[in-house]
């Protein structure tokens, strides 16, 4: 059972205090978008064995959504950060690269 630190309230919350919310940094495609873009937004989810970015909500705590970068194979957590970002912050990216030199980067 994972522990993730909520970047808003600082609680190192165990998984039962959190709700999962699928892949992070999705770009919304609304009216007028192509079928391909809409399909990728709605249905095409990454499912890597390795570095992954996810949404979590501190639902039994401060109620805020945050994002987590972790390894789906080893469960190593590279960091958590606020949801109001459109891509992983540089310090998290640097930490991942240090720990996973073979990582091909975000996107």
């Amino acid at each position: 059972m994972l522990i993730l630190e909520c970047p808003y309230c600082g609680v190192k919350a165990e998984e039962t205090e959190l709700s999962p919310g699928h892949e992070a940094h999705l770009k919304r495609f609304g009216p007028g978008s192509s079928d391909e873009d809409f399909e990728s937004y709605m249905f095409a989810r990454k499912n890597p064995k390795g570095v992954h970015f996810e949404r979590w909500r501190h639902s039994y705590g401060c109620g805020k959504w945050f994002l987590a970068a972790r390894c789906t194979a080893t469960l190593e957590v590279f960091g958590t950060y606020p949801a109001q970002t459109s891509e992983p912050p540089p310090d998290i990216v640097a930490r991942i690269k240090a720990r996973r030199p073979e990582w091909e980067g975000y996107k």
């Binding site: 309230c9 609680v11 039962t16 205090e17 639902s59 039994y60 705590g61 401060c62």
Partner: peptide, 9 residues
């Protein structure tokens, strides 16, 4: 501390 007690917030 906001958390859960058993099954409720």
């Amino acid at each position: 501390r906001r958390t859960r007690v058993a099954q409720v917030a």
